[in-house]
Design a protein around this nucleic acid. Sequence first.
DNA 1: AGACTGCTTAGACAAAGTCTAGAAATGTCA
DNA 2: TGACATTTCTAGACTTTGTCTAAGCAGTCT
Lengths: 147, 147
Amino acid sequence: MGLSADATPPRLHSAQAITLLREHEITPTPQRVAIARILLARAQHLSADQLLEAVNRSEPRVSKATVYNTLGLFLRKGLVRAVVVDPAKVFYDSNTRFHHHFYDIKSGTLTDIEETEIGMPALPNLPNGSIVESVEIIVRLRSRFTQ
Amino acid sequence: MGLSADATPPRLHSAQAITLLREHEITPTPQRVAIARILLARAQHLSADQLLEAVNRSEPRVSKATVYNTLGLFLRKGLVRAVVVDPAKVFYDSNTRFHHHFYDIKSGTLTDIEETEIGMPALPNLPNGSIVESVEIIVRLRSRFTQ
DNA sequence: AGACTGCTTAGACAAAGTCTAGAAATGTCA
DNA sequence: TGACATTTCTAGACTTTGTCTAAGCAGTCT
Ligand SMILES: [Mn+2]
Ligand SMILES: [Mn+2]
Ligand SMILES: [Zn+2]
Ligand SMILES: [Zn+2]
């Protein structure tokens, strides 16, 4: 047991991925299916670059532009959500339930906090004419024994 | 009354800025004072680029590298804090009280939510051996009449 | 003066993400 | 089937934020 990345990360069967895409009114092209099979296999947080790498370990090859296009499409269709917590890159989150995050500063790892695990505070009055798009709580953590 | 940026944003007097820096054990060089006079004049959220522009509207000229170096130093010394909400750039926040933010998606504007205006969320158990570095609530807003 | 320190600087560099223009695939219909 | 339109994919140029390096500059000490 080491620290290396998953050699064979879980994947959806193509049929499952295609069904998911169709349910969200997305034409299931081979590239989109390949991306969905990995990203949507379980609740996880992947950067565009991590996803590009993972997808291109097997066929079909997918370009960087298509990965970004597809992530944008999945976002608009509600299949994933974006987590902005690291100034250097966006994480794409396949957990679409309303939830929050621990962020381990040192390792750069996100961990979900489900809605039931946290007491949601009441919001103050909103600026006039605005509506809430999302509420995110981010708890940054650092290791107790690291200075 | 227009939408243009402040022609003459408020500035601290040099003596005030120097005192602030000394209180935080920062050697008050001319460049650091120039940056502090603008950034610390009031509670605000500026990107590195906005600050670079504002500082260089008058003497002394400050290089990009020095702006980033100084922001890093101010962060470590607790004079400002970083707000990560826009994947494209970090905002530096001169309000160092514990507080949260509204983020207007369209305009890219941050507005403070003071601690007294919102309840502190009850946190779940932390992963073992970790301590809380910060807790941030970000409420993303969009205009009611914009599609 | 010479040596040492801390600070600033230009500009090269890195990395994430966007954009463009053309190629390829897919669909429609005569 | 072939002609044409529409959608999707792609390489690679480009933009932007931010980091790094190596040299210069300004004090301080002896
Ligand atoms: Mn970016
Ligand atoms: Mn960046
Ligand atoms: Zn999540
Ligand atoms: Zn603030």
